[in-house]
């Protein structure tokens, strides 16, 4: 891990009229670090994620990102063209519902290849070879490359979505409940896969989840949100084993022990 952060967020707030989406959020994210944002429904996790991923303009505050040339740029002072370019090259966004992140009517190969074609790759054979390679890495059989995601199971779709995002070797991936809606055994495989990919590729990731087990397995650090505010941050193991804030203690103790 390097000494210079990849993402600097300062005093970020988002208001929906008089209601608070998230308020006064500041943190830094380092390269290769996985940060989990946990909290109950309506606590502002997704609002925060959308503000970071430039999917939703924040009301106040700034988000700075270190570009590949080492310069920090304020995301909301960039031109839209630059932002969109960043989103499809240096970033990934894994949606909770794979249908939101995939093109359901084109084949798996084209789904993975889309980003490559968007950055100017014009060699069919190479695009296909890269797509095949990535399908292998997310454990999708190579003979499914010409099938549409509609023919895939939920777990496969989610893995395909991950492959589609990682094909351009991004440095930062946003994940919104990546294991939501999957059954427990499929979740376990997906988490295992994600953990492997994140450490192999040295990805930084921000994972929004309400599932503390996901946070425990995937993340190095976590932030606990409540009513749009951050109530506690710290190393994942510390927060889960020795929660300081009253709300975190409640959250941790509410996990069903089996």
């Amino acid at each position: 891990m390097s000494d210079i952060p990849l993402l600097k967020v300062s005093a970020l707030s988002k208001f929906y009229g008089s209601r608070i989406g998230c308020q006064n959020v500041s943190f830094e994210l380092w390269p290769g670090e996985v940060l989990a944002v946990v909290g109950e429904s309506g606590s502002g996790k997704t609002t925060l994620l959308d503000c970071l991923a430039t999917r939703l303009a924040p009301s106040t505050g700034s988000v700075e990102y270190r570009m590949r040339d080492g310069q920090f740029r304020d995301l909301y002072r960039m031109s839209e063209a630059e932002r969109r370019f960043l989103m499809r090259t240096d970033w990934g966004f894994v949606h909770q519902n794979p249908a939101d992140g995939l093109r359901m009517t084109v084949s798996a190969g084209a789904n993975v290849g889309e980003r490559l074609m968007a950055v100017g790759d014009r060699h069919y054979g190479k695009i296909r070879a890269t797509a095949t390679d990535w399908l292998g890495r997310v454990e999708i059989a190579a003979d499914r490359i010409d099938d549409q995601p509609r023919a895939f199971s939920g777990g496969m779709r989610q893995r395909l979505q991950i492959a589609r995002n990682l094909v351009t070797n991004p440095r930062l991936v946003f994940m919104d409940e990546p294991t939501g809606g999957l059954d427990v055994s499929v979740q376990a495989r997906l988490l295992d896969l994600l953990r492997g990919l994140v450490s192999d590729l040295g990805l930084a990731a921000i994972v929004v989840t309400h599932d503390l087990a996901v946070a425990r397995l995937l993340s190095h650090r976590m932030m606990v949100m409540k009513d749009g505010h951050i109530v506690e941050t710290g190393l994942t193991d510390r927060v889960l084993d020795d929660p300081q804030a009253a709300y975190t203690q409640l959250l941790v103790s509410s996990i069903l022990q089996v």
Partner: peptide, 16 residues
Amino acid sequence: LEEYGLMHVKLYEDIA
């Protein structure tokens, strides 16, 4: 913004 990658997705699908 000259984002025409999608056009090639269609051609890719044709070849596939």
